Amino acid sequence: MGDLSRSDSSWFDAETTTFGDRVTGAREAASLGQAELAKRLGVKIKTIRAWENDQAEPRANKLGKLAGILGVSMMWLLSGQGEGLDGPEAQEPLDEDLEKVLIDLRQMRQEQAQLAERMGRLEKRLRSVMTDA
């Protein structure tokens, strides 16, 4: 993390972005709105929003179709590696304070995703214990 004005292929890598960030970036690069993408995939718009907000991920069949529509590889959507989007063209450097805020926000998003994953595992364990009891 660091220079937000870079234009190399790591702009959308796993360390910099989430699955949802890559879906959003690819959808916007393809000039598609959420509603149009949902219609083309045969899903509800709330499903697209959940994917873009990292609240859910598509099943394999939808992932393949999503990658095809967006013109990126499934591997890139999942991991940031492979055929995907290049970063934006060189931009004006951001103010140092603004860059720090953006870095903090990204870190908080990653921590939130990790907490959500832990909560999911705990919920699964709780259900298992309740079922056994």
Rank of each mutant, 00 (worst) to 15 (best):
S5V: 06
A90S: 08
A116F: 07
K65N: 13
G120R: 15
W11L: 04
L85W: 01
A56K: 04
W76V: 00
D132M: 12
T18C: 09
K62N: 11
G120A: 13
G64P: 01
D21G: 07
P58L: 04
L85T: 00
E99P: 02
A90I: 03
K100Y: 01
T17L: 06
R22S: 01
L63K: 09
D132V: 09
D132A: 14
A30F: 06
V23D: 05
A35W: 13
A90M: 02
Q110L: 11
A26K: 01
F12H: 07
Q110V: 10
D54L: 02
P93F: 02
N53R: 13
A29I: 01
G33P: 07
G120F: 07
D97Y: 05
R125E: 15
R109K: 15
A113V: 09
D13Q: 04
D8F: 06
M1N: 14
E36K: 11
A116L: 14
E117I: 03
I69T: 06
A113N: 15
A14P: 00
A116H: 14
D3M: 13
Q114P: 00
L4P: 02
Q81S: 11
R59E: 13
D13R: 05
A113I: 13
G80E: 00
G25N: 02
G64S: 09
S79V: 05
E83Q: 10
T17H: 14
E57K: 14
R121P: 00
Q114H: 08
S79Q: 09
K44W: 10
T47G: 05
L4C: 00
G120K: 15
P58H: 03
